[in-house]
Amino acid sequence: MFSFAMLAVLVSMIMALTRALMGPSVYDRILAVNTFGTASILFIAVLGFLTDRPEFLDIALVYALINFIGTIAVLKFFKYGSLGYSDKDGEEEEA
């Protein structure tokens, strides 16, 4: 069953990759990268269960955090054109 799940994850990875390659608009590509990150999280989790090492799940969780922060940062950058200043009080932020 886990190998079937792995196959499904790989197929979804390929689909996200084609969207990132073709994607006419910018948002298609951002969404494709986000989806690809999610697919790689699932890949790591399923890989952990496939090889009897369920502690990979923790690593997958940290990947989820990185993916989330990365997507937020890209979107914020895309909206404001910079990361160093927030738009109200000029407070410095770190990506």
Binding site: F77, F78, Y80, G81, S82, Y85, S86, D87, G90
Partner: peptide, 8 residues
């Protein structure tokens, strides 16, 4: 200090 809004 206010952000340069050239991202648009």
């Amino acid at each position: 200090l206010p952000a340069p809004k050239d991202g648009k």
